[in-house]
Design a protein around this nucleic acid. Structure first.
Lengths: 128, 128
DNA sequence: CCTTTGTTGATAATAGTTACTATTATGAGC
DNA sequence: GCTCATAATAGTAACTATTATCAACAAAGG
């Protein structure tokens, strides 16, 4: 149990709400832009702080895309294919469960991402 | 086939060699430090340029760890568990083949990484 | 040779994220 | 409600990893 009491702020609520209302992965900047419509002078640092807090407490999940961190309410179904040529990241369907992974690694997996790399169909056919 | 001819330079060779001699994933900085012992005035930009070139041609693989990109000769067996508390990244054994993945997604998968997140055993027992 | 063009080193620039600090606001106990 | 300790905030600077820029260089082919 943590020794430091966590406080429920307007900002935290707004950020949590944005992630939960959204179906897809959001970057911190996207959350920031959305949050500013509700709390005009909210700071980007606050957005990062609260997003990371929510990840650590397990309320939301974080997935790395290239060099940017993204956040979503979905703690699963994250399989991506990244093209080494055009750098695009494509979502691909994949059935893999956190419960199965937890058993395999012997630790509680709350989220996962399967990131594959290669050359996408488009670049392959273009012979870039 | 590419239209621009690629040249085999001393720097490219040194960088390729470093990655191939090493069993584990290296950051660009680590490759840079090592490369400087052989080519004292090599530039960090050159290291990045060549590492990315090697990734694109498929000679080496790149795996994202947190916010840093790492490079390795292993194009497979990349399963990691990242703790959301202590931020450590642990390697975990996992059997998953690129050939099987290629079939599933319908594109040639040259490399993949299964990244799981959760709370590691140590942090779990400490109740941080 | 001489031209073309890929590569390099040095450095500036960028992107994403975190750290710092004075100020504000939350919430537990009165 | 009011007080007070302190967590959280806004604003901004700093930091880290990576990429872009560019003059100088070097290899390959006529």
């Amino acid at each position: 149990m943590s020794s430091k009491a966590s406080r429920w702020t307007k900002q935290l609520e707004v950020i949590m709400d944005i992630v939960y209302r959204n179906e897809f992965n959001l970057t911190a900047d996207e959350v920031y832009a959305e949050a500013r419509t509700q709390v005009p002078n909210i700071s980007l640092g606050t957005v990062y702080r609260n997003l990371n807090k929510l990840v650590q407490t397990g309320y939301i999940a974080s997935v790395q895309k290239g060099q940017v961190q993204t956040f979503s309410k979905h703690p699963f179904t994250n399989a991506h294919f990244e093209c080494v040529k055009c750098k695009r990241v494509l979502r691909v369907p994949f059935d893999l469960r956190t419960t199965d992974l937890s058993k395999k690694v012997g630790m509680e997996v709350t989220n996962f991402e399967l990131r594959m790399t290669g050359v996408c169909r488009e670049c392959e056919s273009k012979c870039i």
